[in-house]
């Protein structure tokens, strides 16, 4: 579900079930042409939508992180992910146009890109190749 679809009055009932946050990250720096920005956002949208549709009852999509020069954008995503953890979120997923070049952060469990899903393994982003959806595999490591 998207953040704007959550009524304040209902959140206390849903909070226990919605333990995963989806952060859209468009990885823009501002120097892109308008059509390049559009294409980048479309890439992120295309990886987000199937996730949102399939796991609408457990994944909360929050407002996107858009701009950052160099690794600054990814650092911003990492900071947001860490703050989500502070709030009590159990899993953080990032929808991105590509795998970040910056360092891995333990605050992010999974990155979903147009070319596949990536998890952190030994400090590196490793492509997920198992048939089970990586998010479901992550959830299976915990009991709701």
């Amino acid at each position: 579900m998207k953040f704007d679809a959550v009524p304040k009055e209902q959140w206390s009932q849903w909070e226990a079930y919605v333990d995963t946050v989806l952060i859209p990250w468009s990885a823009l720096c501002g120097s892109e042409m308008p059509w390049e920005m559009h294409a980048r956002l479309a890439l992120v949208r295309d990886v987000m939508e199937p996730l949102e549709r399939a796991f609408a009852g457990r994944v909360l999509t929050i407002p996107a992180v858009h701009y950052g020069v160099g690794d600054a954008g990814w650092q911003e995503v990492s900071t947001v992910a860490r703050m989500c953890r502070v709030r009590g979120v159990a899993f953080v997923v990032v929808a991105a146009p590509h795998v970040p070049t910056g360092m891995c952060t333990e605050a992010v469990d999974l990155i979903v890109c147009p070319d596949g899903a990536y998890i952190v393994k030994e400090g590196q982003w490793v492509v997920w190749e198992q048939p089970m959806h990586p998010l479901v595999a992550l959830w299976n490591t915990s009991i709701v």
């Binding site: 579900m1 849903w14 079930y17 919605v18 549709r53 399939a54 796991f55 609408a56 009852g57 457990r58 959806h133 479901v136 959830w139 709701v144």
Partner: peptide
């Protein structure tokens, strides 16, 4: 329950049932 997408026969513990991956 909360609008996730169910799947058929996807949980070995509950064969021949529709199963929701979000909250079981």
């Amino acid at each position: 329950h909360l609008g996730c997408t169910i799947d058929w026969n996807s949980n070995p513990q509950h064969p021949n049932e529709f199963f929701c991956p979000c909250h079981a």
